[in-house]
Design a binder for these strands. Structure first.
Length: 118
DNA sequence: GGGATGACAATTT
DNA sequence: AAAATTGCCATCC
């Protein structure tokens, strides 16, 4: 059949940035997780492309984004490391412990998964 | 408009 | 554990 009907409908980078802005200090997320949370599972590469276009003075915590291996793969890895350590994240050789610092969109207590949610 | 590249990931060898 | 393969999307030449 036809191969994906991707018409003029483009992905929303704003959604990714919105989710990223929700990542708390001292935590990190992978590109894939970020893409998944934003509603675009499997499009990790695209997330990388989006972040690569962020301005240098952006307020978005781009330094909290690492790859699935927990490695800081951004061109400012040294800066990201510096920031993460400042937030209490253990960074070793541009690498963080995903098992310990990986952030999940956990709902705050009281807000249980209700089907009536939007 | 095709091919290479990039802040990726899951699977397989 | 590490390298190779394949998939994925936007951007650059």
């Amino acid at each position: 059949m036809s191969k994906t009907i991707n018409l003029h409908l483009k992905l929303s980078s704003a959604q990714v940035l919105t989710v990223l802005a929700k990542v708390p200090s001292g935590r990190v997320v992978s590109f894939g997780d970020l893409a998944y949370m934003a509603g675009y599972p499997g499009k990790a590469r695209w997330v990388g492309t989006v972040l690569s276009k962020l301005p240098a003075h952006t307020q978005v915590p781009w330094h909290r984004v690492v790859n699935a291996q927990g490695i800081l793969t951004c061109p400012r890895a040294d800066l990201a490391t510096k920031r993460l350590i400042s937030e209490g994240v253990s960074v070793r050789n541009s690498r963080v412990s995903m098992k310990k610092h990986r952030w999940s969109p956990e709902q705050p207590a009281g807000k249980v998964a209700d089907s009536t949610e939007d």
